[in-house]
Design a protein around this nucleic acid. Structure first.
Lengths: 182, 182
DNA sequence: TGTAGAATACTCAACGTAGAGTATTGGAGG
DNA sequence: CCTCCAATACTCTACGTTGAGTATTCTACA
């Protein structure tokens, strides 16, 4: 995933690792899955060894220097390959951490479990708010002209958050009913 | 996540890394997020150093030996801590690989993109089938007595797969309409 | 009774992730 | 003009993941 994002950005124009960081922060990507600093530089170094990118130039600013990376022909091919795979592979990913917690929910007291799940609801609500304001900002920035695919992605994110919310609510209801049944 | 599963199983009874593998394979866990071989042994070694588990005994079978791990008091506490966190932390995870592919979908030809997305639909259908037959098997094995929480988790998995399916279908429709519009 | 393949039980190295830490430069306020 | 904080541009190391690989034992069947 990191590689797709990094190569995809370099395919637009040569830039430095730091530039990529900024691009990802501004773009949608920041919302749906942070590619972290270390991963970017790691990917750049790795892909340089593999000949997918090269250092185009090194800009000096006093004692500080930054490397501008450029995608190679091999890199462009690899990118198209990676995009194909990303579209083709199954995109379901279950919230396995939550599931594993639920599997062993009896290891904590019902009260603690309920508190925790309610805290999660709050976290989900926050996520939803962040999505909404993010979308609104984008809408304004693009003068009500959000690309349809971006719109689809946002809708999918909304749907995922809502589904998780409903799930947690049901889990809470279940726990409460089990608690009163004794 | 690995830690929760490993500790949770060891809390039921002492067992070896291999036993844990088998347990996870049989249980639901295999369906929603494989904990792989290496991760189990790594977790065991790591947690042994941290005093969360200890080697209870070593069983010999000819020249082959297996280490039976046992959870410690510290381990039990840690488990309850981890379960709490798993329930509390936000459980949304977006299909970021797919999103990054869609972000750079123009790097492949519309035909290739459509083929890839259709292949993904097939993959999702397969996932759905696997879920269904898994659930049916469980239902029979437990004599129509699936625990309500397990039922909830399955329902959540179904919902997630369906949501992804609808999303991909919409993306395909969008691509097709864009293709005919020129 | 021999043997091929499945099951058992784990090792290992390569790899990506993560984010705190480091060092330098630019700019705003006193 | 100086100082301090934000921005720039990475580095570094600890950590978990991954699955092929290794070695041994069991078992079915010919």
């Amino acid at each position: 995933m990191t590689r797709v994002l990094v190569l995809g950005l370099l395919d637009v124009q040569p830039m430095s690792g730091y530039d990529i960081q900024q691009m990802l922060r501004i773009s949608d990507a920041e919302r749906w899955g942070g590619v972290l600093i270390g991963s970017i530089y790691h990917a750049l170094k790795k892909m340089e060894k593999e000949g997918l990118v090269v250092v185009d130039s090194i800009e000096q600013t006093g004692h500080r220097q930054k490397a501008i990376y450029k995608i190679t022909t091999m890199g462009t091919e690899h990118l198209s390959q990676l995009v194909g795979e990303s579209l083709e592979n199954s995109s379901v990913n279950y919230p396995s951490t939550l599931y594993s917690g639920l599997s062993f929910i009896e290891k904590v007291s019902p009260e603690k479990a309920l508190t925790a799940l309610n805290n999660q609801l709050v976290a989900l609500e926050k996520e939803y708010q962040a999505l909404e304001s993010g979308f609104r900002l984008k809408d304004i920035a693009m003068h009500q002209n959000i690309p349809p695919m971006t719109k689809l992605i946002f809708d999918n994110m909304y749907a995922i958050v809502n589904q998780q919310r409903a799930f947690i609510e049901n889990a809470i209801k279940l726990l409460e009913s089990q608690q009163s049944n004794r």
